[in-house]
Amino acid sequence: MINLRIDDVPAQAEPGQTILDAARAAGVRIPTLCHLEALCPVGACRLCLVEIRNWNGKLVPACATPAQEGLDVVANSDRLTSLRRTILELLFAERNHICAFCVSNGHCELQDLATELGMDHVTFPYRFPALALDASHAKFGIDHNRCVLCGRCVRACAEVEGAFTWGFAGRGVHTLVEADLGDRWGRSVTCTGCGKCVQACPTGALFEKGKITAEQEKRPALLAEITERRPRA
């Protein structure tokens, strides 16, 4: 058992667990976005950054940093809240998040985080890059304008479904998730139509066809429910 402190409360973790696991077990809330139970952590969104007092105040992603003996972790502070707000602002400014017109309005992790962290306005100029919407799939659609590039769809499809349909293409601000090396999703030969990516997606980027504004609810916990039932290797 590993012993550490998070926000001045004693916390415990098993070897192999992360700071986030330890925080959850100890009842300390840390905001997350790219992380999803059952998927490999990637540390991409940086919303779960925590400060390690005994590493000179270094910031590390709680979701992807192994818990270590003796760590003195600050999970919530004014500095961290303001940093998290800035990151959310950057996400809102990066593409197009006009919630009133979004299938996920009211059921969106990005929106919830903004509410939780008190991000009530965006001080950056909106980029509005006018990206494509691909509705070629029989059951689902993807609107890149709502995508935050968290990669949850990529990992759900690869790690849980084993189909490896989604991947990242391009780099920097031009990065897009794409199906089968750039083909339209509807023509994908690898997609089984299981819908795991859609359930994993935190925003309105991936949606079920037929859902209109504010109707798209997701079941991100589905993946953990599936993997927990699997026999362990």
């Binding site: 540390g43 990242f168 391009g170 780099r171 920097g172 601000v173």
Partner: peptide, 21 residues
């Protein structure tokens, strides 16, 4: 650097663009 950002993390992917703008 904005061009070479891999795009994985938000601070660099969007931050470089905002500074550049």
């Amino acid at each position: 650097t904005a061009d070479e950002s891999c795009g994985k993390c938000v601070p660099c992917r969007v931050g470089t663009q905002m500074m550049l703008a």
